[in-house]
Amino acid sequence: MFPQVDTQAVLAITLAALVTYSLRLGGLLLSARFPRTGRFRQGMDALPGSLLFALVIPSIVAEGAWGVVAAGLTAVVMLRTRNTLLAMVLGMAVIFAARRLTV
């Protein structure tokens, strides 16, 4: 059975989708106009790492000292082994254990 989708819902989803997609494609199309050398290029090279670091840091800090330990272990394991899955699982294991110990 197909449920009814009301007009409002279609409108809300369409608008949200247009906004999101424009940002995704807009960023890519804009980047073609960016200078490929010099200072601007240095900034763009540093962007992905900075963005990802900015994304995780509040969640690490929110987890307290154990969050820092978990993230630190994840970072060290990643640097040593380059194994993303192992690094992730060990970081989660620290939080899993810490939540059991500290409650």
Binding site: D45, G49, S59, A71, M78, A87
Partner: peptide, 24 residues
Amino acid sequence: YALDFAFTAIFTALAVGLFQGKKD
């Protein structure tokens, strides 16, 4: 199960993978 930390952990690992050395 610390699944909420899965994103933090994996994004941390991926960020470390993007680290370009001292200049970063």
